[in-house]
């Protein structure tokens, strides 16, 4: 019998993607993790093991900043989960209603902010909410609610929530589109069968459509989680690297940026920065694993 020929074409076709991906993703990732194990002492790079992580979690100068950033990050995520995803599902449900007019227009209008740059979104919202030039105070004034206006981005207690809601505004189109696609793929027969059994209108949504789109909601949740824990741009564009006021909008991304690259008089420390990047990687990895092994495998799937 002839020995099977080695399939060179597989290697040839895989090579570009593998090489590029390795060069720009895998190698930097592992190199960053490696960098976290070193420190600079008297102009020399020395191996210090896990000491940087010990500093990050235990040192009274670093730990509160880290936990503050992590806590803010969780709040950022929770706001997205509680506001962005339910609204996304609701919008998708409304859009998939067969008698809705101008559905395509709404769909595009809601999706467009997603393709805008963070810088534009951050800047535009800063102007909208500006107490001096913004239209928010005058619009509230027009309906007699001026007293409700506050310089939200400048107050410790509101700033992070405000930014989270701006981010929700920007990205609500993504869950909407994914759920919308999932809803469209539900066969008419199932809904008709339900109708015959007396399940119509809103209860058809809760009892038939929602269980069928649950896997999509799971995927959206995990995308939101990864996106939020990697977030940086919006906070940086709107509040700067110091994530003011008083670090109330500091999330892991801005904390990492400030530490790694330095800020104003603070010189950059690539090693501590890498340690924070390593911690972010671990948090996201754990979160994704919990989802993959704890939730997704237990989710009931229906054959359509």
């Amino acid at each position: 019998m002839q020995k099977p020929r080695f399939r060179w074409h597989l290697v040839v076709f895989l090579a570009p993607a593998v090489l590029v991906y390795t060069a720009v993703m895998i190698f930097p990732l592992f190199n960053t993790l490696r960098l976290a194990l070193y420190s600079k002492v008297d102009q020399e790079r020395v191996f210090v093991g896990l000491q940087n992580f010990q500093t990050l979690f235990g040192d009274p100068n670093w730990a509160p900043a880290f936990w503050n950033a992590l806590g803010n990050n969780f709040w950022f995520f929770i706001v997205h989960m509680l506001v962005q995803n339910p609204i996304g599902v609701a919008l998708a449900a409304i859009l998939s209603h067969p008698r809705l007019r101008f559905a395509a227009l709404y769909r595009s209008a809601i999706f467009i902010p997603t393709i805008l740059s963070f810088v534009i979104v951050g800047f535009a919202w800063k102007l909208i909410l500006s107490p001096i030039w913004g239209i928010a105070p005058s619009m509230l004034d027009a309906v007699g609610l001026k007293s409700l206006f506050a310089p939200w981005l400048g107050k410790e207690e509101y700033a992070l929530t405000t930014l989270a809601l701006i981010s929700v505004w920007q990205f609500v189109g993504i869950p909407m589109m994914l759920i919308y696609a999932a809803l469209l793929s539900i066969p008419e027969e199932i809904l008709e069968a339900g109708e015959i059994d007396g399940v119509t209108g809103i209860s058809a949504f809760w009892k038939i459509k929602l269980p069928l789109i649950l896997p999509s909601i799971g995927i959206i949740s995990i995308l939101t989680f990864v996106g939020n824990f990697n977030a940086f741009d919006l906070i940086y564009a709107a509040q700067g690297a110091l994530a003011g006021p008083d670090f109330s909008t500091d999330i892991l991304g801005t904390f990492m940026y400030r530490t790694f690259f330095g800020f104003q008089l603070q010189l950059g420390d690539p090693h501590m920065g890498s340690a924070i990047a390593g911690a972010m990687f671990a948090i996201i990895l754990v979160g994704v694993c919990i989802y993959l092994f704890g939730i997704q495998t237990r989710m009931r799937r229906y054959q359509l």
């Binding site: 909410l129 001096i132 400048g154 107050k155 006021p245």
Partner: peptide, 16 residues
């Protein structure tokens, strides 16, 4: 300081 100075940025101040 102006109304809402908490959210007033550096360019805002310059322009004011």
């Amino acid at each position: 300081l102006g109304d809402g100075f908490e959210a007033q940025t550096y360019p805002d101040s310059q322009n004011l």
